[in-house]
Simulated assay, not measured.
Amino acid sequence: MKSSFSILVLVSTIQLMTVLCASGDFDFFYFVQQWPGSYCDTKRSCCYPSSGKPAADFGIHGLWPNYKDGSYPSNCDPDSLFEASSISDLKSQMQSEWPTLACPSSDGIHFWTHEWEKHGTCSESMLDQHGYFETALKLKKEIGLLKLLTNAGIKPDGRFYSIKSIEEAIKEATGFTPGMDCNVDGSRHSQLYQIYMCVDSTGSNLIECPILPGRRCSSTIEFPKF
């Protein structure tokens, strides 16, 4: 009896240690949104998804586990494959808030599969597949990037804005400093492409970024129309 109890305690301890180790596999998330006008306004161009042209709003790129040293885990569980049925109740929201712009035109399944299998599987200790995508959708709604920028007089009108003004508008509205990423249009103008916000490892709370991603931005950048 004593031996059986000892084995049970040992097994429970190992299971607890496994959970604790798994929960410490990353430090925070980058929640990344991209501006469709900048994705499309490049030499590569874009293709609208089969569901139609997305709204002129930031779209989700991904929710990416990261380490404080700037590195990140990826493809953590090759056996945890994306299952479209697991997010069937979120599909209409996904098509609206997490649209694909890659060519050829598609329904988004390939994009979402890539995001889950590369990034989502590294967050399974905190979020299952449905929880991963649902969390990203909630974060997008909570942050409301386009509205807060528009409220600060920064609009997707093809004009140029200082990157400092964009950062300050986001920080004033959210309380946290964003990371910025730019790309270039056909005329080699630097344009607002992606905005990174940092989230704790539970996916629940915005936090100040332990490390900001390197940006490819000029001091003044274009906010293109879409």
Rank of each mutant, 00 (worst) to 15 (best):
T121C: 07
Q129N: 09
E168L: 13
W98R: 05
M180P: 03
E115Y: 05
T177Q: 15
P99S: 03
L127T: 09
I166D: 06
S71P: 02
D79L: 15
F176V: 12
I154R: 02
M94Y: 08
E134P: 12
H119T: 04
E83T: 01
A173Q: 10
M180W: 00
Y132Q: 09
W116S: 02
E83A: 08
H119E: 02
K171T: 12
H119P: 00
W116A: 01
S80Q: 07
P156L: 01
G131L: 07
L148C: 09
L145F: 15
E83F: 08
E117A: 06
L149H: 06
G70N: 01
L148E: 10
L148R: 12
D69N: 14
P178Y: 04
S162H: 10
E115M: 02
F133Y: 09
Q129R: 00
I87G: 08
S92N: 07
C122T: 11
I143L: 06
K155N: 14
S106K: 06
S85E: 08
C76V: 14
M180F: 09
R159F: 12
C103F: 03
L101P: 04
L127S: 04
D77I: 05
F176M: 10
G179E: 00
E167L: 11
I143A: 00
A169P: 04
A136M: 07
D107A: 04
E167P: 03
L101K: 02
A102P: 07
W112N: 07
Q95N: 13
L145M: 12
K140F: 08
T113S: 09
A173W: 10
G158V: 07
L127W: 00
P104Y: 10
L101W: 01
G131C: 07
S165E: 11
L137S: 07
S96W: 06
G70R: 02
A152Q: 01
I170C: 08
E134A: 15
E134S: 15
